[in-house]
Simulated assay, not measured.
Amino acid sequence: MTQYADPCLALVRPVQSLTPQGCQGCLLLGSPWVHLRLCLTRGHVGCCDSSPNKHARRHAAADAHPIVQSLKPGEEPVPGKRAPDPPASLPRCTPPPRA
């Protein structure tokens, strides 16, 4: 059996949310958000793509941190979720090849 190493898993670290009360950028701007995403590399909390400012995507693009986890209350966390459509500069998180 061939071992598969997803390059994105190397970016995942144990993190604490830096701003558990909400989106870091929106809190500074006084702007609303829809859902929150936690960066699993640094702990940055940003708003989702349905939010006006899309801070989670901006953080992923600026800092090359494509792995996020939802912080929606009542939603089961799903570690390893890749930010949708990351810029080409980010590692591509691909499923393992089929056996």
Score class of each variant (00 low, 15 high):
residue 5 A to G: 00
residue 92 R to T: 06
residue 93 C to N: 10
residue 83 A to C: 15
residue 30 G to R: 06
residue 79 P to Y: 05
residue 64 A to H: 11
residue 78 V to K: 15
residue 12 V to C: 02
residue 23 C to P: 13
residue 48 C to S: 15
residue 1 M to T: 06
residue 6 D to K: 08
residue 69 Q to K: 13
residue 94 T to L: 15
residue 38 L to K: 00
residue 84 P to E: 01
residue 36 L to M: 04
residue 87 P to I: 05
residue 65 H to S: 12
residue 91 P to Q: 06
residue 94 T to I: 06
residue 21 Q to M: 09
residue 88 A to Q: 12
residue 23 C to Y: 04
residue 38 L to M: 02
residue 7 P to S: 09
residue 60 A to P: 05
residue 6 D to N: 15
residue 28 L to A: 14
residue 71 L to P: 13
residue 38 L to S: 08
residue 27 L to K: 04
residue 56 A to K: 10
residue 83 A to G: 10
residue 20 P to I: 03
residue 2 T to F: 13
residue 62 A to T: 09
residue 77 P to H: 01
residue 30 G to E: 01
residue 72 K to R: 15
residue 48 C to M: 00
residue 98 R to D: 10
residue 99 A to H: 14
residue 35 H to S: 07
residue 46 G to M: 05
residue 25 G to V: 09
residue 61 A to P: 07
residue 97 P to N: 03
residue 89 S to G: 02
residue 73 P to G: 06
residue 20 P to Q: 06
residue 93 C to R: 11
residue 75 E to S: 11
residue 96 P to A: 13
residue 79 P to V: 02
residue 71 L to Q: 07
residue 17 S to Y: 09
residue 41 T to D: 11
residue 19 T to S: 15
residue 47 C to G: 12
residue 41 T to S: 15
residue 96 P to Y: 05
residue 42 R to A: 08
residue 59 H to D: 09
residue 40 L to D: 05
residue 72 K to S: 10
residue 84 P to S: 07
residue 65 H to K: 02
residue 68 V to T: 11
residue 28 L to D: 03
residue 19 T to P: 05
residue 35 H to A: 09
residue 98 R to E: 12
residue 74 G to Q: 06
residue 38 L to A: 08
residue 61 A to R: 14
residue 81 K to N: 07
residue 98 R to V: 14
residue 82 R to E: 14
residue 18 L to I: 11
residue 52 P to I: 08
residue 6 D to F: 03
residue 58 R to E: 09
residue 43 G to M: 02
residue 88 A to T: 08
residue 69 Q to R: 14
residue 10 A to S: 14
residue 95 P to E: 08
residue 81 K to D: 05
residue 18 L to E: 08
residue 52 P to L: 09
residue 68 V to H: 15
residue 66 P to D: 03
residue 90 L to E: 07
residue 11 L to K: 15
residue 99 A to R: 13
residue 42 R to K: 13
residue 32 P to A: 06
residue 86 P to Q: 07
residue 53 N to P: 00
residue 31 S to C: 03
residue 45 V to P: 05
residue 83 A to Y: 15
residue 84 P to Q: 11
residue 82 R to M: 09
residue 13 R to F: 04
residue 3 Q to R: 14
residue 16 Q to F: 04
residue 50 S to D: 12
residue 91 P to L: 10
residue 76 E to I: 01
residue 64 A to E: 03
residue 9 L to E: 13
residue 92 R to I: 05
residue 3 Q to W: 07
residue 55 H to I: 01
residue 8 C to H: 12
residue 17 S to Q: 13
residue 54 K to H: 15
residue 46 G to A: 08
residue 24 Q to C: 10
residue 13 R to C: 04
residue 40 L to P: 03
residue 58 R to H: 11
residue 74 G to L: 01
residue 35 H to W: 00
residue 22 G to I: 00
residue 4 Y to V: 06
residue 44 H to M: 01
residue 41 T to Y: 01
residue 25 G to T: 14
residue 7 P to Y: 12
residue 86 P to Y: 11
residue 21 Q to C: 03
residue 99 A to V: 08
residue 14 P to Y: 02
residue 6 D to C: 13
